[in-house]
Design a protein around this nucleic acid. Structure first.
Lengths: 121, 121
DNA sequence: CAAAACCATGGAGTGGAGTCAATGGTTTTG
DNA sequence: CAAAACCATTGACTCCACTCCATGGTTTTG
């Protein structure tokens, strides 16, 4: 799949896709046709982009996502404590969700207030 | 409360607090002592900072938080559709939480994989 | 086959959210 | 009362995640 189609399907701009690739988040095999140097993305890139979006929604930086991905691929490289890394992210995200829900509640309360007809003091 | 104490209690830097104040997120009455121009923060600023942190955790920008706050104070200004604004934020955040939880699940699965002793093929 | 549509690279620019540094005034403390 | 600790302002700077542009090559299409 070429970048234009991936862009359309993922909803991300071409520039963002090229940026992600430069960062190492996604990969393309260059020019299958060999005549040009157009990027050619495997179809599961779309799924990966979804996962990246999930990670970003959870507050992870691109650098974190890269660390996480490299972690999955080389699960037994022992120069890096993957378990600690994972646990730290899990804790962070759990905490973030808790805070988000608290904020959501206050938005709902505000909604209640707005929905209530003005006081007839 | 002066900025140093607020900083210590909130865990935010003085610079961040001054930055927030410039943005209009928090307020101080200047120099109660009248002799200096030190900021003096009411004690409920701490609570407000907590709420701001919640909002940020939920992915809201500072500009959004300001809009939200102004919304609570002037609930009947009719040049702005507060209900639509609130509903949009609620939807956004709900969606973000859903994505975060999906990502959390994949982290937990990765954790499982790491915890599993290497295959004895 | 020419115009339109698509692709590439490199590098500059943007916006959000702080962070740092320089300079100088005020309070607290031993 | 001097030194240390605290405070103020202004403006420059950083980092992140894009986004835009200029320039030029490749494909597709009518």
């Amino acid at each position: 799949m070429r970048i234009g189609e991936l862009s359309k399907r993922s909803g991300l701009s071409r520039d963002t896709l090229r940026f992600y690739e430069k960062q190492g988040l996604i990969h393309s095999r260059p020019g299958a046709a060999a005549t040009n140097n157009y990027r050619d993305y495997p179809k599961d890139t779309l799924i990966q982009l979804e996962q990246i979006a999930d990670a970003q929604a959870a507050g992870m930086s691109i650098a974190d996502v890269i660390l996480f991905l490299s972690q999955l691929e080389a699960a037994d490289s022992d120069d890096f404590d993957g378990e600690a890394f994972l646990q730290a992210r899990i804790d962070e995200i759990t905490y973030r969700i808790k805070r988000s829900e608290r904020f959501l509640d206050s938005l709902r309360r505000a909604q209640q207030v707005l929905a209530t007809p003005p006081t007839e003091s």
